[in-house]
Design a protein around this nucleic acid. Structure first.
Lengths: 233, 233
DNA sequence: GTCTATATCATGATAGAC
DNA sequence: GTCTATCATGATATAGAC
């Protein structure tokens, strides 16, 4: 149970399994990753997954929980700091984006301890959720999402709430691809791209996100199909 | 071999298999989708997949090829039309975005004949490519990507080429999430979202993409790590 | 806690009758 | 072209010795 995250190689069997599973899930997906592959890479016995986690599904949940609760706390803390500075005034969009996506990119920048791998997994999972994973993610995000949503609503009072939600969703997509990164981009570029420097990625992604978030609304009838009062809670 | 795409239910066994595989691949991924699931949904015999396609991998490729070649042709035609109008002048960013993403969204709007399903599959696959799928996608995009890349370079001469590639990549991510749509968004919204009206989606996504594409560059040193002449071919 | 051995089941693929 | 029956393999999970 020690939380001292040594670099690279964990000695604890539990952590070794989690590390191996995390990286294999990214490359092959949950169901295509067998327990033999996981225990093989972790250098532990096949039966140890069931001993430590009970089942493969429980292992999947632990892979997420291990990092996601911490990540969401950091996102909230970042938001807290900005709101403390603002003293009740609405935040600026770039602060909210910084709090959520900056922290995310920060975790994605950690290649040694697996943060990068995890963020790729998270982005991939968000659009391809198995039933029980979706349920699980919804619970993990239950605290974070409303906070950021409200901050955005206050920050952009002229933009319809639905529009803000969608744009946040688009930003998640852009970030997901950003972190998936060179592997997928290489498919497009004929020449070899530079290594993914975390800071460079942030300098690239952030302006894009803000540009999209603050883009002028489409011309006519953003609320064409009005349906009574449709306001986010 | 008839290309008359009847609505809904195909009578041809081949097409029935392709339809079933397409939708199952979206929901469960390639490897988690068994041939029994596919033939079961298609209402055909288990052995027919191997008879008609030879293997499961070959089936996967056929699922993509069936729609992707057509889609890429449409994207090129749209670009051709704009360039014909422009008579040698550089296109405007919104035209290029319209040509690529407008056509994509148009296919994604087709829910009856499976275009929507396919576009979700394509977006999911782009960041989670099995080895042979990646190879295959690279071939399919070999013609389209350079054309659009060059159009963007001409359209935005002040933006470094690498930056343009990345922003195109980000746009793909935003579109992928946009099409994945309500399923994933619902995870975030506490209230029930409206149905995904295709036109509404386009009105939402397009301004976001353009805002991101044309966003001002990050302040200092966009090319901090210069490495000789790094120009796209 | 770790390991071997094994039970049970689903998978991709094929052979061969019709 | 379609179907049944079947093979070989690999999956998750567990029982029980150490």
């Amino acid at each position: 149970m020690t939380r001292t995250a040594d670099l690279r190689q964990h000695t604890d069997t539990r952590e070794r399994i989690l590390d191996a599973a995390e990286s294999l899930f990214v490359d092959h997906g949950f169901e295509a990753t067998s327990m033999r592959m996981i225990t093989g890479r972790a250098g532990v016995n096949l039966a140890s997954i069931n001993y430590h986690f009970g089942s493969k599904d429980a292992l999947i949940q632990n892979v997420f929980r291990r990092r996601l609760t911490w990540l969401n706390q950091e996102r909230l803390h970042a938001l807290d700091r900005f709101e403390a500075e603002a003293k009740g005034a609405p935040l600026k969009p770039h602060q909210i984006v910084e709090a959520f996506f900056g922290v995310s990119l920060c975790m994605a920048a950690d290649t040694e301890r697996g943060g990068h791998t995890f963020m790729r997994l998270l982005g991939r999972t968000y659009t391809e959720p198995t039933a029980f994973v979706r349920q699980f993610l919804a619970e993990e995000y239950a605290v974070v999402v409303p906070r950021f949503k409200q901050a955005l609503l206050r920050s952009l009072p002229d933009v319809p709430p639905d529009e803000i939600l969608w744009r946040f969703h688009f930003m998640l997509g852009a970030m997901s691809y950003a972190i998936a990164g060179t592997d997928a981009l290489q498919l497009m570029a004929e020449y070899e791209l530079e290594e993914t420097d975390p800071e460079a990625l942030s300098r690239r992604l952030m302006p894009f996100l803000l540009g999209g978030l603050r883009a002028p609304l489409a011309g006519h009838a953003g609320k064409a199909k009005e349906k009574g009062s449709r306001r986010a809670v």
